[in-house]
Structure formats: C-alpha cells, structure tokens
Write a protein that binds this DNA or RNA. Sequence first.
DNA 1: CGGCATCCCGTCCGATACTG
DNA 2: CAGTATCGGACGGGATGCCG
Lengths: 121, 121
Amino acid sequence: MKEDGIGLDVTLEVVCGKWKGLILWKLIHENHLRFNELRRSLDGNISSRILARELKKLIQDGLIERIDYETVPPRVEYRVTPYGRTTASFLEKMNEWGIHHKRRAYQQESLTDVSNQLKEQ
Amino acid sequence: MKEDGIGLDVTLEVVCGKWKGLILWKLIHENHLRFNELRRSLDGNISSRILARELKKLIQDGLIERIDYETVPPRVEYRVTPYGRTTASFLEKMNEWGIHHKRRAYQQESLTDVSNQLKEQ
DNA sequence: CGGCATCCCGTCCGATACTG
DNA sequence: CAGTATCGGACGGGATGCCG
C-alpha cells in the first residue's frame, strides 16, 4: 500500500465549489482579464458578488493577483501568479477527463434506452 | 487560444465536495472495502449518513459499484469500477499538487512572519 | 452491519439593488 | 467599471437515534 491521500484534501479545498476551478482555468489561458471581462467569459451566469468572493479566496491562496490601476473609472485586472499556474497540472487532466465523461454519459443514455427496449419485450 | 474548459465543469461536479474525491482515492488504492471499513479509513470523521449519500452519487455516475452479499448480518462491499479508475489520472495530480501546496503554505507563514518583523522596524 | 430519519447549522450560490 | 449590501433559497455537512 502506497502512502495515502495526504495532499488530495487540500487540493479539494482550494479548487472546490462551482467556480474557482473554472476561474483559474480561464486566467491560465487568457492572462490578465478585467473583472467584467472575466465575468462575461464564464458562461455569463456568475453574479458579481460570487465572482468577487471567489477571487478573494484565490488571492488569499496566492494563486492569482489583483492589479488595481487606480484610475477613474476604475480599472482592475486579475492575473494568475506563477504559482497559480502550477495548478494547470491537474486542471488539464480534469478537463480531459470531463470531456471523456461527457461522451460516456451520452453513450450511457443510448445503452439504457436499448436496455429498456429489451425489458419491454 | 485553445478550445475552452469544455470538460472541467463536469469533472468539478463529479469530484466536488469534501468527500467524493477522497472516497474514490481510497477505493482506487484499496479495492473493495466494506461500508464501515471505508468509513473508518477516511480520517474517521465522516458520518454514515454522509458516506451513504456520497456513495450513491458515485454509483449513479458509474464510478463505483456496490456488491451486496445478502447475508445476515449484512455484508456490503464497495469497489471502484474500471471506469472509475480512470479518475486516477487527475486525482494523482491533485494529490501531488496538494502535497506541494502544504509545503508552500508552511513557507508562506514563515515569510509573513519575517515581513511583519520588517514592518515593525 | 449497513444503513435511513430527523433535526440543525453554516456555507454556497443567486437575483436585485445600489455606490464610488 | 468594479465592486458592496441585502435578502433568500438550496445544498453540504454533522450529531443523534433507530431499524432490519
């Protein structure tokens, strides 16, 4: 038996929830997005309140940084830090797996359809 | 720009929450655990209610399977399915990253200590 | 042993409105 | 533009007790 999941728990904490993983993923691929830019790029259905909160958490963990240009009107950009970029190691894998899972879920539907048809005979 | 995070969202759904990732991880490394065996192996602080609920979700997604020996007293085992085992691709990476993150969080504390000492001067 | 029922709380998530 | 304030619902997670 190998050593246990000593690290998995904290990764789950960092990336968990509906949005933080997606935000990280976006910033890794886009580099420096402004608040509303980021908001619109996330399927459009995250509220500003939620986005602000999730961003704060990611900043606290040192994964992204906030650049305030101190202008009027305000201009703030968010960037992934070099450290935050290391999360790509598992986000990449998660994304790949998700794509397969979607394909499989679709096949699964077809299978149960067939199975139901068989049962009806 | 590459294609977007078309898969990440569903992976987050599957693995999200405090426990499902850890349960999968356990079953991948142990193969067929009984209910209370599994429960005790998870830091001991998951309630049976929560465990039962999370197991159901994982079964619905086809990641694990339940084998009921139909004996008295009851004997039920849980196993990861071949498909469930494919999640190891990202769980492995998440675990590695988490270990690094813990180490870094520790260093970070030392850094802020130093930073605070500097500010006091 | 392997759960389910009940109650409870804190957090997540969202819509809407508003501010500097 | 970049958020904050407020309200409210849904869900995750936990403690306790009971059942076949």
